[in-house]
Simulated assay, not measured.
Amino acid sequence: MPAYVVLTRERTHDTEAFARYAEKAKAAREGHDPKPLAFYGDFEVLEGSDMEGAVILRFPDMAAARAWYQSDAYQEARQHRFQGADYRVFIVDGLEEA
């Protein structure tokens, strides 16, 4: 069953650190092959707190999503994300495709 990693950027506070995160996060996807379904495109907040953008990555299953998130490469990239912006990140199980 597919799994989705959802990252919502709530507030940027260091654009240089965020740029380093973006570079390292892109490299961290190598070998994990997530399918980007949304990547900082146009959005509209209908309920809840405001945000600056969102990413949705599709993985084959929860184990694959966790393997990417817990990889050494992403963990290093994540440190720059912490310095650069406030995020909410979660993994959610998807539904079997019809």
Rank of each mutant, 00 (worst) to 15 (best):
E30K: 11
A73W: 12
E16Q: 11
A28I: 03
Q79P: 01
A17I: 03
F59M: 06
F39V: 07
A73L: 12
D61I: 00
F59R: 03
D72K: 14
E23Q: 15
V92I: 10
D86N: 09
A3C: 02
E76L: 15
Y40Q: 09
R9H: 06
Y21D: 14
A38R: 01
P36W: 07
Y40H: 11
A67W: 08
A22M: 12
E52S: 03
R29I: 02
F43A: 09
G41T: 08
A64Q: 04
A28R: 05
K24G: 11
Y40V: 02
A25D: 10
E23F: 06
F90L: 14
K35E: 14
K35G: 00
F18Q: 11
F18N: 11
L7I: 15
D72Y: 06
D50M: 00
E44A: 07
G41M: 08
R9P: 00
V6G: 00
Q79H: 10
F82R: 05
L95W: 07
Q79D: 13
D93C: 00
F59I: 00
Q75A: 10
A17M: 08
R66V: 08
P60D: 12
L37E: 13
Y4V: 02
D86F: 02
D42T: 11
A17E: 07
Y69S: 06
A64L: 05
E96N: 10
P34G: 01
Y87I: 13
F18S: 05
E76H: 15
E97Y: 05
A77L: 13
A25G: 11
G94T: 05
H13Y: 14
A67L: 05
Y40L: 11
Q70H: 14
T12K: 04
A17G: 03
R78W: 13
M51G: 04
R11L: 07
Y4A: 03
H13T: 05
I56E: 09
A63V: 03
A64K: 05
D93T: 02
E44F: 06
G31M: 07
A17Q: 07
E76V: 13
V6Y: 01
P60N: 04
R66D: 10
A54H: 01
M62P: 00
G94A: 04
H80F: 14
S71R: 07
L37F: 04
R20I: 10
Q70D: 15
A28E: 11
P60E: 13
G48R: 05
Q79K: 15
H80L: 07
H80D: 15
G84W: 08
T12E: 10
V45R: 08
A85M: 08
L95Q: 06
M62W: 04
K26W: 05
K35L: 10
M62E: 14
E52V: 01
L37C: 02
R78M: 12
F18I: 03
E23K: 15
Y74A: 08
A22W: 05
A28S: 15
R29Q: 13
R78A: 14
A63W: 01
E10Q: 11
V45S: 03
G94N: 03
G84R: 08
Y4T: 02
E47L: 03
F18M: 13
G94D: 05
Y87V: 13
R58P: 00
M51A: 11
R78K: 14
